[in-house]
Structures are given as structure tokens and as C-alpha cells.
């Protein structure tokens, strides 16, 4: 009988002492922190992708709370919606930013770009690009080993085994920019998603002279300048034998696409042309 009693008593005393100790420690070692950081963090996606420029979501929340305004603060993954809600919590105006998406500026599929050697090292773009130009004659194009896909936390970019090129899934891409940073050839650009997801861009970064570029890849931009002449809005510039469409000036009229002799200008998500069917 006493054994049971003593046991219970001992447990009670131990429990009470431990509770007191914990309570004291909680007070003593309490770290004062802006309570809004927790609130802001709970609004963030929690992917810790680093697209905002901070190490993770918590750091971004802390940065938002200590900043004077939300100017330049942007969570690419959460988008304008999340920023608006953060603004509401902090009593600040969220900057209005266009939603963006990652765009791969290479169209050198296996059929367009014949291989002239065989890579036999670790299948990693950074390794291959530190070693040499790549498996094809084009020193600018995609190496196809998928560093971008490995860098994406959302599964938003994958290598298509048929073309050997990365493909962006518009539903999953948050434009955090991890893939763009991972690409040693700097092929990936973050462009505005565009109205109704209509986009027009030059899918090539080859800066060689037309003949050389064409020899390496049939889908290359050869720097002929036809698109520049065609564009009524001065949205296209030609530098180092390479055309670039400024997304802010482009009106998506698609005249450049029709003028391009190699098909290097890609138009995505436009409805099919009526003439094609007739």
C-alpha cells in the first residue's frame, strides 16, 4: 500500500519540480521577436525556394517586417495575391508586379542539332560546361543534363526525353528563378506570363554569325534582322547576331514569327490560326 503511495507522491513531486523548472526556463530564455513575423510567415508558401533573394521564407518574413515599405519585396512563388495579404497584415501597400514564368531560350532538339561527340562524364550541366562546349556544334545551346530540373523545388521544369530539352510546366512554375541560376549556359529567362498566357520570344541564344549558327542548329537565330524590320513597335533588338524581343514593348502581333526563316521565334498558347485549317 505504502509503495504505491510513495511512488505516486514521488512522481507528483518530480513532475511539479520539472514543471517549475520549465516555466522558469521559458521566461528566462525567452527571445523577443516581432510577433508579425510569424503571421507573415504563415501566409508564405513555405517552399524556401530562395526566389525572393532571402535564404528562406522565415527570413523573407523578417525582412518584410523590418522594411519601411514593400517596394522591391516580392515572393515569386506566392505572387501578387500573397504580397497583397502581407501588405494587409503590415499595413503597407504591396507593389504591383506582373506574374512571370521561366522560358527556355533554346529550341535545339535532337533532330535540329546533330551531335558531334559523346559525353561520358557525370551527367551534369555544370560539369560538362566547365569541360567544353557541349555535345553539339552549338556552344550556346542546352546541354540537356537537367541541372535546371534538379534545381526546381516544384517539379515545374523537366527534361523531355524526346527533344532532350527542358520543358516548363506553366501550372507548377512559380518563376522563383532557381533554374535560371542553375543553368550554366544562361538559357532560362523569367518573362511576363502575358495576357491569357500568350507569349512570344526568341528561343535561341547563339551569338555566332548566321552561317555558323545555322550549321550547328537548324532552329538557330541567324541574326538576319527580318524580325526587326517587321516589328512596328521597335520591340526587337539585334545584338551580336541575336534577336531579342522586349516583353514590355511587344504587342504580340506575331508578324516577327511569320518572318523568321528558321522558326527561332516561338509563340505559345495562341489560338490556332484560321488560315491553317482552310
Amino acid at each position: 500500500m505504502y509503495t504505491v503511495l510513495y511512488t505516486l507522491l514521488l512522481l507528483l513531486v518530480t513532475g511539479a519540480l520539472a514543471a517549475l523548472l520549465l516555466a522558469w526556463a521559458a521566461k528566462k530564455f525567452r527571445v523577443e521577436e516581432d510577433p508579425r513575423i510569424d503571421e507573415v510567415e504563415s501566409l508564405l508558401p513555405g517552399a524556401n525556394c530562395g526566389g525572393c533573394g532571402q535564404a528562406g521564407c522565415r527570413q523573407f518574413a523578417a525582412a518584410c517586417c523590418s522594411a519601411g515599405s514593400l517596394e522591391g519585396m516580392q515572393c515569386p512563388t506566392g505572387g501578387a495575391d500573397v504580397m497583397k495579404r502581407i501588405g494587409a497584415v503590415l499595413g503597407m501597400e504591396a507593389a504591383d508586379v506582373q506574374p512571370k514564368i521561366a522560358v527556355v531560350r533554346c529550341a535545339g532538339t535532337c533532330s535540329a542539332r546533330p551531335k558531334n561527340n559523346q559525353f561520358d562524364g557525370l551527367r551534369n550541366c555544370a560539369v560538362a560546361s566547365s569541360l567544353y562546349a557541349g555535345e553539339t556544334g552549338c556552344a550556346f545551346g542546352c546541354l540537356g543534363f537537367g541541372d535546371c530540373a534538379a534545381a526546381c523545388s516544384f517539379g515545374g521544369i523537366t527534361i523531355n526525353p524526346h527533344t532532350g530539352l527542358p520543358e516548363v510546366n506553366p501550372d507548377l512554375c512559380t518563376a522563383c528563378g532557381s533554374c535560371a541560376k542553375a543553368c550554366p549556359k544562361h538559357l532560362i529567362e523569367l518573362r511576363p506570363r502575358g495576357p491569357k498566357d500568350h507569349r512570344l520570344y526568341v528561343a535561341c541564344t547563339n551569338r555566332e554569325k548566321g552561317a555558323e549558327a545555322r550549321k550547328a542548329c537548324t532552329a538557330a537565330c541567324i541574326g538576319c534582322g527580318k524580325c526587326v524590320k517587321e516589328c512596328a513597335f521597335e520591340a526587337i533588338t539585334l545584338q551580336d547576331n541575336l534577336a531579342y524581343i522586349d516583353p514590355d514593348k511587344c504587342r504580340l502581333c506575331r508578324k516577327c514569327e511569320a518572318a523568321c526563316p528558321t522558326g527561332a521565334i516561338h509563340a505559345v498558347n495562341f489560338p490556332p490560326k484560321k488560315t491553317e485549317q482552310a
Binding site: 562524364g121 557525370l122 551534369n124 555544370a126 560539369v127 566547365s130
Partner: peptide, 13 residues
């Protein structure tokens, strides 16, 4: 294993 390939990558970074 491509040990040196990986180490080179780490060294460069």
C-alpha cells in the same frame, strides 16, 4: 563512381 567529376563541381562552386 565519377568521384573527381563531383569533386571538381564542388571545387568550382
Amino acid at each position: 563512381r565519377p568521384l573527381l567529376d563531383c569533386i571538381r563541381l564542388g571545387k568550382a562552386t
